[in-house]
Design a protein around this nucleic acid. Structure first.
Length: 578
RNA sequence: AGGGCGGUGGCCAAGUGGUAAGGCACAGGUCUUUGGCACCUGCAUGCGUAGGUUCGAAUCCUACCCGCCCUGCCA
């Protein structure tokens, strides 16, 4: 019955497969730097990293890259990694984001154990650090307004000028800074600044702001503070406090590294090493907190977990697996060069993963009815179907077959072109797991000419899809029994943007104009095999011959809802385009 | 224009003076009860450009060109 198994060569390919997938020992410049630190015993043989998101938005695939780099390296080196919320700006931060970020990092498969930290928990220490710098004459309270400060800072090509408040006495600075903390001054009226060098070519070194007066409710510390430290005065010290060895971040912070080092040296505290890498860019989408936020808040998409979004929440809902995302991250590598990764690279990783784990199932997206004239009127046969040809342990199931079935409208053509291996008048095809059928005629709507039903005959000797006479058929179609079909809504997604680089398309123009009006197509009238009736939310399937789909959270027993994660590769479609 | 960082095939990316890994994409083929998967083959006489050093240069030197980032009391 079940044809003695497929290709024997398949099992021999394990080795090559292994090498291609297991890229975790790929080297890159960061690992080399760590290797060298290990050799020189720079951090007593420790490797300790961190991922420091600001809880002001959801994580996206670009963050996944950063997480995989920082946490992945720590895992490989048998080191430790911290999750630290960089929450020094109360205006944009919310605990909803904290929860979402934790959920997403866990989902990706990383466990930071008890090492969950909040930069805001270091506020008191940071304050003491600030006092210490003032006492050492390395920080001062400045009364310049934001506008004035901008003027004093100078430009890229001209040096800045010292603030007139730069030479206050230590005592006065202490008093004033305490006054700032005590709420004696209005928002924005004073800042605490590091006393570095107003003529530095690196603008970050031109007496950068360390503290600002800001009466804003902190999601974690309420109204305990009315001064908040800036990123520069928070990040490095947080790394230092936590004993991080390698602080891996985006290249945009390269210019901040001298300042990162300066604060730690001035404070005479432990100094981690910051190393920068290039952020991820992906074709046909935007990555970047503020842009994603605009898409969500202006209603261009349906929330942070809209399956069209490159957020981890959206990708999860779309059907992406953590393994696929991590595989993607290792495949794209790490360097400092600007990059723009092709979407096909991501799609490869998810197809590759789902091919091995997603059960096959039959679903007709655009149904057309087929009546098998010579099949007994009320007969129902249960036919065996393997669940996954790539995984024997997945077993098999039974699916009902009867006189009336649905097939895909695209699988029939009245006047087919050459090489159309599907159903057409007079042609014989195989119904997957079932029988060979031959098309005899079609019934059309007299007015519109639309095909209403297709009449076929079947060959009872081909049960299971095999013929003893060695006869071969050109094509194999998926189908669903009319009587047993379950109704489903299927959501098909295209890229969110029509441009490969929405941000760099027609120069200077607004990226949002390139939103793809066809990014979502809803098919209401899909017919799926009954085994799907008890499919759980987020479970993933391969709809035979069409793509990978997952059960959406909107799905109910009355109305199944599926999201298309990614279509199968389609060489027939490709051929037709030529 | 000042500073920082980059430039290896369509897209990523190894390469660290000894004669251009690998992946994705693409093209062709084998196999096939998924036009899927898998498998095979092809795909940089050249590493931003021009000079130089060397027996030998993507790797070293010089000059130039191009790209990205930096003028928030955001991170």
């Amino acid at each position: 019955m079940k044809q003695s198994n497929s290709n024997p060569k398949r099992s021999n390919n394990q080795d090559t497969n292994e090498e291609n997938t297991n890229n975790s020992h790929q080297t890159n410049f960061i690992r080399q730097a760590i290797d060298s630190d290990l050799e020189n015993n720079r951090f007593d043989g420790r490797v300790h990293t961190r991922f420091p998101p600001e809880p002001s938005g959801y994580l996206h695939i670009g963050h996944a890259k950063a997480i995989c780099i920082s946490f992945g390296i720590a895992e490989d080196y048998k080191g430790l990694y911290n999750l630290r919320f960089d929450d020094s700006n109360p205006i944009t931060e919310e605990s909803e984001y904290v929860e979402a970020i934790k959920r997403d990092v866990h989902w990706l498969g990383f466990d930071w154990e008890e090492r969950e930290f909040y930069a805001s928990d270091y506020f008191e220490t940071l304050y003491e650090y600030a006092i210490k710098l003032i006492e050492n004459g390395k920080a001062f309270v400045c009364d310049l307004t934001p506008d004035e400060m901008r003027t004093y800072r100078g430009t890229l090509v001209t040096t800045g000028k010292d603030s007139p408040y730069r030479n206050r006495s230590i005592e006065e600075n202490i008093t004033l800074f305490q006054g700032m903390r005590n709420g004696e001054f209005p928002d924005g009226s004073r800042t605490l600044r590091a006393k570095i060098d107003m003529s530095s070519p690196n603008l970050n070194m031109r007496d950068p702001v360390m503290y600002r007066v800001l009466r804003s409710h902190h999601y974690r510390h309420g109204d305990n503070w009315c001064i908040y430290p800036t990123y520069d005065f928070t990040h490095g010290q947080s790394d230092s406090i936590e004993g991080v060895t390698h602080s891996l971040c985006d290249v945009q912070f390269e210019d901040h590294r001298p300042l990162y080092d300066w604060f730690l040296e001035a404070l005479e505290i432990y100094r981690p090493r910051q190393i920068e890498f290039a952020r991820l860019n992906l074709t046909y989408t935007v990555l970047g907190k503020r842009k994603l936020k605009i898409l969500v808040e202006e209603g261009h998409v349906d929330g942070w977990d809209d399956p069209r979004l490159p957020t981890l929440a959206g990708m999860r809902r779309r059907g992406y697996t953590p393994d696929a995302i991590r595989d993607f991250c290792t495949r794209i590598g790490v360097s400092k060069a600007d990059n723009l990764i092709e979407l096909s690279q991501l799609e490869y990783s998810i197809r590759n993963d789902l091919n091995l784990r997603a059960p096959r199932v039959m679903a007709v997206l655009n149904p057309i009815k087929v009546i098998i004239d010579n099949y007994p009127e009320d007969q129902v046969e249960m036919l065996e179907a393997e669940n996954n040809p790539e995984d024997e342990s997945a077993g098999s199931r039974e699916i009902p077959f009867s006189k009336e079935i649905y097939i895909e409208r695209d699988d029939f053509m009245e006047d087919p072109p050459r090489k159309f291996y599907r159903l057409a008048p007079g042609k014989e095809v195989r119904l997957k797991h079932a029988y060979y059928i031959t098309c005899e005629n079609v019934v059309k709507d007299e007015d519109t000419g639309e095909i209403l039903e297709i009449h076929c005959t079947y060959d009872p000797d081909t049960r299971g899809g095999w013929s003893d006479d060695g006869r071969r058929v050109q094509g194999t179609l998926h189908w669903v029994s009319v009587e047993h079909a379950a109704n489903a809504e299927v959501r098909l997604y295209e890229t969110l943007f029509t441009e490969r680089e929405p941000e760099n398309a027609a120069d200077g123009s607004d990226w949002i104009q390139f939103l793809n009006p066809d990014s979502l197509e809803i098919l209401e009238n899909c017919k799926v095999e009954p085994s799907l009736l008890d499919a759980e939310s987020e479970s993933r399937y391969q709809f035979l011959r069409t793509g990978y789909f997952c059960v959406d959270s909107d799905s109910t027993a009355e109305k199944l809802v599926f999201n298309r994660t990614v279509p199968l590769r389609d060489s027939w479609a490709k051929m037709q385009k030529k």
